[in-house]
Amino acid sequence: MSAMPYLSIRDLHIATASGKPLVREVNLDAFLGRVLGIIGESGSGKSLTCLAALGLLPRELSASGEIILGGAPMPLCGGRKARKTRQGRAAMIMQNPMSCFDPVFTIRSHFKETLAARGVPRSENKPGRWQAALEEAGFPEPSQILGLYPFQMSGGMLQRVMIALALVVEAPFLVADEATTDLDAASQARVLDLLEELKERRGMGILLITHDLSVIARLADEAAVMRDGRILDRGDVFEMFDNPGDAYAKALFGAHFRLYERKDASGADEERGKENGS
C-alpha cells in the first residue's frame, strides 16, 4: 500500500448557482491498490463528488475545496486544464453503459478517438492495442467486438468495454460510478471479478460508488457513507460493517444484514462470507 493517497479530496463544497448546497465538507483519500467505496442513496452527492474528482463538474455548479489527483491539483471548474490533469491519471466507468456510448459510432471508433485524444500517434493507435485491452477485460474474441455498434451489445458487455477503454489508456486509477447497478446478477459478478483482478494484478486504485452494500462488502477496503452531501462515517470496511459509528449508517447496515439474517448466532463473519459468494 502506497503511503500517499492517489486521490485526495479536502473540504469539498459543491452548490448550485443559487446557493443550495449539494456536497458539504467532504474529505476523502483513495490509494492505489485499494478500493474506496462510497455508499449512499440517490441524491446523497456521491456522483457529484466523483465528477469533481475527475474535473467533470457541470459549469452551472460552483465548487470550493482542494483535490489532488496523482500528485497534480485538479481544477474544480473543469475545462481544458482539468482534462489534461485527468488524462493518464484516472478513467471512469459509469452506470447504464448503453447510454454512455455514442450510438452511431463503432466500438473501434471509441477506442481510436480515446487514444488519439491521449496523444498517441497514428502509428501506434492500432487494433492490436485495443484488442489487448479488450482481452484483458475478458473478451476472448476482441476483433469481433471492434466492429460492433453499442446497440448490438448487452449492458454487461459494454460495461467491460468501458473497463477496457480505461485499460487502453493505462490509467492507474478508476472511478466506478454505480457501474454494476443496471446489470443482472451474472454480469455484475463478472464485472466485480474483473475489478478485483485489476486491483490485485495491476495495482489499480478504485473509487467505487454504489448504493448496494453487497458490492461494498465484496470489493471495498475502505468505505464512506454519504447522506445529504455529507460524509457521515468513514473507515475500514470491516469495522464499518461491524460497528457503524453513525445512526444513519447503523440503520443502513442493519437493514442490509436483516436481508441475510440466519438462524444460527455465528454473527457478522458468516453473513459476509455468504455475500462474497453471492
Partner: peptide, 17 residues
Amino acid sequence: HSRYALYARARGLSEAS
C-alpha cells in the same frame, strides 16, 4: 448534456471533438 457526451469528456476528448 447527454451521457455519451459526458463519457467522451471523461475519456479525455477535447470539447471541440
